[in-house]
Design a protein around this nucleic acid. Structure first.
Lengths: 223, 223
DNA sequence: TAGATTGTTAATCGATTAACAATC
DNA sequence: TAGATTGTTAATCGATTAACAATC
């Protein structure tokens, strides 16, 4: 097989999901090195700082498509750009957030999203009491304006922080309005058409891992 | 190998992490069935509702140790109890939360934790301006009282929602105070002694998955 | 009974890890 | 140069999936 000039090998095969999930941690650390004035970094050092095995980091770096120099390592700048590009974080995406409860408000106020190429440009809620309020400088719009807002602002991503009961209904409207991805924080599995991608982020998942590990550890100690 | 009377096979081999991560979703759905007055459920139906393959659900149910009846399925009540027990959610654990920023406040106010066997009984912050405030009925204590609070209330779990810069320092104090598990929301990898388990829940991870999938999809469409 | 569903053993798949040659 | 580090190919490991017998 021959590769065209503008198409690199790593662009064609999709990167394994576990590697994608490690990318943000790499990115964060790489920026830290850069802030400290460093230019080059070795997979060995990265692995050490992230408590991963060097071989795994090397594989992950290979997925980015960046080539390293033996004995020296990788150019930090190159890695940052490549990872950002693979995650689609090189261009900022505009997002709409639905449901300004506790979690929703926290997310609107969260500064970290800038680093992840995400900007919350609109906030909607079904509760008339909340409509008109300003949260972190963004005015809350009524849910009725969902379709209009998405189309007008050409929004691709929705952050769903409505109650579980309202999640499917809201997702349907989002799908119809042409949204591409839904980041779902509601504890509810959504059914959506093929053209929409749903990513569930569930507090319970992390807690389940933690508590089962603690339980297992206590069990082991008492054996 | 012979199994003792009080020790079941599934108690000895630890359940794979991916299965543990699916447990909360099963639990949620099982409670829903129960609320609808149902008593029995088949792996087939569960799989259908969660968009998983029936064979995977059957494997997961096997991990719980609950036996099903061919043609009928599993007793919902039994599955709920077994999953809760495996996650250590059968007894409520008390937790301390550190750092009442946007996310911290949202977590303190989050009602869902009751279902996960977690109760936030103390909230601490380093900022004197925040100390004394009440959040969802809990009074914010100064960070100085960390050790005393953990010991007095016999707290095993800490929820860490401090800024990244303060995360390692706070984790050190938590470890010294004898905490068993740290649920870390700060975008920072922590080093802790062996007796402490850290679970990182990172907003960036979920967003990375979503945005890379969207990017891949858009790429595929334009091919 | 017939047939849907469970439960177990084996096959497959995909990610991690190991081994080692290439290289600056 | 010597040796640390990269990059590739192969081995291993663990989870998912398939196949099918058991069973109510």
């Amino acid at each position: 097989m021959k590769w065209g000039v503008q198409m690199e090998k790593h662009e064609i095969f999709s990167i394994p999901l576990p590697a994608i999930r490690r990318f943000p941690a790499y990115l964060r650390l790489l920026k830290e090195y850069q802030a400290n004035g460093e230019t080059w970094i070795s997979a060995t050092k990265l692995a050490d700082d992230l408590q991963l095995k060097p071989i795994q980091v090397r594989k992950d770096m290979a997925y980015t498509g960046v080539e390293g120099k033996p004995k020296v390592g990788f150019l930090i700048e190159e890695l940052i750009l490549a990872i950002r590009r693979h995650l689609g974080w090189d261009n900022t995406s505009d997002a709409v957030l639905l449901g300004v409860g506790n979690l929703g408000s926290a997310l609107v106020g969260y500064k970290g999203f800038e680093n992840y190429g995400l900007r919350i440009v609109a906030v909607l809620d079904a509760d008339p009491e909340k409509v008109g309020n300003r949260i972190a400088g963004v005015q809350v719009l009524p849910l009725e304006r969902l379709e209009e807002t998405i189309r007008r602002l050409k929004i691709n991503i929705a952050i769903l922080t409505v109650p579980a009961e309202a999640a499917q209904y809201t997702a349907n409207r989002l799908a119809n309005a042409g949204i591409r991805g839904i980041w779902n924080f509601a504890p509810k599995d959504l059914r959506v058409p093929d053209h929409v991608i749903v990513q569930r982020t569930d507090l319970a998942t992390g807690l389940a891992e933690l508590s089962s590990k603690i339980k297992l550890k206590i069990f082991d100690e008492n054996r």
